[in-house]
Simulated assay, not measured.
Amino acid sequence: MSKAANRISVLNSRFLKRTFSGTPKMSTEIETPVPAAAPPKPAPTKKSALTTDALVVRKNLKTDRYELLAIQRGREPHIGKWALPGGFVEYGEDPTVGVLRELEEETHLVGYPDVHLITVHGNPKRDPRQHIVTAAYACKVKPETLKDLAGSDDAADARWIEFETAGLEGGAELAFDHGEIVAKFRKWFKETGEQQGFYVEDPEGKQPGAQ
């Protein structure tokens, strides 16, 4: 080999060494893909609930005075306080049916199907358990069931209380906002309900358990 050819070979060798000596080696490791973060779960949706309250009046023929049906609450909230008979409307149930069902379950009194809506209360703070909307209905009960009156289910007791003063100072203290409901009912009763006969006459005028 001539000196010129030898020199060219050396230069090519140096060029190739410089060119490929810094080439990174291919990695044989397979990288595991990092899974994408799951989207945050939406906050649980808060829902309101629907209850009904029954407004029932009897005319005590012994005293010639009107009295309001009340139950003594057997559970919290407001355990031991007087309240209107009522409870939660079941799924698929018409409130006008639910109010009579709850009335019978808590007092054993059977109401006529013709009920009258007095008011709807829905203040989110009216019940400490949750946002509960209530529909209050005037109900007339069958006189033959008066003898069966007794507290049952959620009610520890059931009584007739003075209608004129119920929920007012000097009268029976009522749970929740039932005093406001009774005040609206009292106004409607004086203007309309009494003339329509939305009460039951009771010639004996006894309280449950009285002889």
Rank of each mutant, 00 (worst) to 15 (best):
S2R: 12
A4Q: 13
A4E: 15
A5T: 11
R7E: 14
I8C: 05
L11P: 07
F15R: 14
K17F: 11
K17I: 08
S21Y: 13
T23I: 13
S27N: 11
I30G: 00
V34D: 01
A37E: 14
P40Y: 01
P40L: 02
K41E: 13
A43N: 06
K46M: 09
T52N: 02
D53V: 04
D53K: 05
L55F: 07
V57D: 00
V57G: 00
R58L: 07
R58G: 03
N60G: 05
R65Q: 14
E67V: 10
E67M: 07
L68N: 03
I71G: 00
I71K: 00
G74T: 09
P77S: 00
P77R: 00
P77C: 00
H78V: 11
G80L: 11
G80E: 13
L84G: 06
G86K: 06
G86F: 13
G92D: 14
G92C: 13
D94E: 14
T96K: 15
V97Y: 11
R101P: 13
E104S: 11
E104W: 09
E105M: 09
E105L: 12
D114S: 10
D114Q: 11
V115K: 05
I118N: 06
I118Q: 02
V120L: 03
G122R: 00
G122I: 02
N123S: 14
P124D: 01
K125R: 08
Q130C: 02
Q130K: 10
I132T: 05
A138M: 07
T145G: 07
L146R: 05
K147F: 03
D148F: 03
G151R: 08
S152Q: 10
A155I: 09
R159S: 09
W160L: 02
T165L: 01
T165M: 04
G167T: 04
E169G: 02
G170P: 09
G171F: 11
A175C: 11
D177F: 12
H178S: 13
I181T: 15
E191S: 14
G193F: 10
E194I: 15
V200D: 06
P203F: 08
G205D: 02
K206N: 12
P208I: 06
P208T: 09
P208F: 05
G209D: 13
G209A: 11
A210Q: 15
A210V: 12
